[in-house]
Every structure is written in C-alpha cells, then in structure tokens.
Simulated scan of single mutants.
Amino acid sequence: KELVAHAIHYNSDRAGKPFIRVNCAALPETLVESELFGHEKGAFTGALAVRQGRFELANGGTIFLDEVGDFSPATQVKLLRVLQEREFERVGGNSPMKTDVRVIAATNRDLEAMITEGKFRQDLYYRLNVFSIHLPALRERKADILLLSDFFVEKYSKANRRSVKRISTPAIDMLMAYHWPGNVRELENCIERAVLVSNDEVIHGYHLPPTLQTAEASGTVTAGPLQAALDNVEREMITEALKSCRGNMAKAARILGMTERLMGLRVKKHGVDSRRFRSDW
C-alpha cells in the first residue's frame, strides 16, 4: 500500500513536496489529534513548545493515512472537517489553519460493513472514496514478486555495501511458491536478510528465512539418504550454470568440468529444462 502511495506522489505535480505517512492504528487515542493537527505551547501537560501536526507538515504534498478504518468516531469527525473545509486548528489554538494536501487513505477493513455496524461515518467514507484502488494480496500478484525482489536486492545491496547481483533459480522458485501473509513488507524483510547473509554475489535458497525453505527447494536436507542431499546440490549447481550461460549446454558443461554427454544425462535426470533460461537475459 505504501509503495503505491509513494508511486502516486512521486509521479504527480506534488513530487517535490513532502510525503507524510501516518500509521493510524499506531496512534493512541489521547495523542491522535495532536499528532494529526499539532498543538500550541501549553495546550496540555507536557506541551512545552508549539508542535506541527502531520497535516501541517504535509502542506503542498501528500499525506498517506494507513489503516484509516482504525480511527475512532471522534477522530473521524475531525478528519471529515479537514477534507471538507481544507482547514484545521491546532490543539489549544483558536485560529483555523489552511492546508493543501492530497489525502491517500488505505485500510484492510471492510468500511462498508463498518458503516452498517455504525463504526465508520458514511459521509467520511464518501469523502475518501473519490477514486479507489483495489490492491490484491501479494500471493495473488505472482508477477510482482520477482520485480519487487530484484528492486529490494539492489536497494539493500547499496545500503549495506554488498555486491549481490541476482537471485538463484531455486531461490526464485521458493519466493514464488510462498504464500506471503505479510505481503510486500514481509518480502522486503526477507530479501534484506538474504542480502546480509549472502557470502557471494548470489542469493541462494539457503539464504532465505526458514519459513520459505523446503528440503527440496533449498538443497538443505537434514534427514534421509546422502544421495538425496547430493542430488539437490547437483541440481542447483547445474541450474545456476545453465542460467549463467543463458541455457547453453556446452558452456555450462565446461564451467562444471564435465562432458556435454554427461551434462545431458544430468539435466535429464534432474528434469532441468535449459530452454527456460534462454529468455531470462
């Protein structure tokens, strides 16, 4: 959700202005008004100085209200006023302050059901629901998994001064097979961990968290015949060689130090299709 909100902001006329994210579910009810709208000095105990709220900080830019369905009825009334009047007052103040912000709101709740139950204001819902985007869970967007993974590999390689260049095919298979209950945030954390523990330029299956690993996919069989473990290692080495050579069997065989005939037998044994790597580059 936040990635989509970022994309909307940075591809708009407001790109040069602030992007302010608010996790509505994390704001205590006693502080939510102060966090959103700011407060004047002496407005309450502990208010030792004037403080700008999120709407004031976002002026001219975008404010992203994540989990807006968690707001209490009292906060919903105040938010409605900002959307309608384009103004607010700091806590303890009496002078209306104008604001010019794009509001992007997100929730994983059924707001229409909450309206029926009296838990969410209907007028606020219609104010927010000017243009809606339905974002399916990551497990329903398989095509995005690899694109996001590559983006996070590049991001965290630079951030941690690592030289990780790519993700191995077995690791890709594991990423694609997982159900991602934590969506993009879980994927990002997973890739960050893999980048940190990788000791070469490739993220392998065994670099991924245990929740993603299976004995077959990671090549880390902890029980069973020795031959099964050796077969898993051999399969991954052959797959990686074919990927590096763009599916060229002869080149892959030379890299692995075996004859083309033996390479063909091993590929057939492990059910590896060399043609799948010819369009990877």
Rank of each mutant, 00 (worst) to 15 (best):
R109G: 03
V101I: 08
Y125R: 01
V153Q: 09
A177C: 04
P136E: 12
N129P: 10
F120Y: 03
L175G: 01
G93Q: 00
V153M: 11
R162M: 13
G92M: 02
N129D: 06
K142Q: 14
M97I: 13
Q122A: 13
D150N: 15
Q122S: 14
D173P: 00
D100S: 05
V91N: 04
E154D: 13
L111C: 05
T99A: 10
N108Q: 12
V130Y: 03
A106W: 04
Y156D: 03
A159C: 04
M97W: 01
I115G: 00
L138E: 12
R139A: 12
D123T: 01
V164H: 11
S95N: 05
N94K: 10
L175Q: 07
F120I: 02
F152Y: 15
G93W: 06
V91F: 08
F120K: 02
I145L: 11
K119Q: 15
F131C: 09
G92I: 05
M176Q: 15
L135D: 09
L147P: 09
P181A: 08
H134I: 05
K142V: 06
R139M: 10
R109Q: 15
G92W: 03
L124T: 01
V103R: 09
P170M: 05
P136V: 12
S168H: 07
V101F: 00
L146N: 14
I133D: 01
R161N: 15
N108W: 06
D173H: 03
I133C: 09
M174Y: 04
A143I: 10
V130L: 09
I115W: 01
D150W: 14
N129M: 00
K98P: 06
A171E: 08
K155D: 04
P136M: 08
L128R: 02
S149W: 12
T99C: 11
Y126N: 12
I145F: 07
A159W: 05
V103W: 07
P96E: 07
I172T: 09
T116E: 13
N129R: 00
I167A: 14
E154C: 10
L147D: 15
D123K: 09
K158E: 08
P96T: 05
K155R: 15
P181V: 04
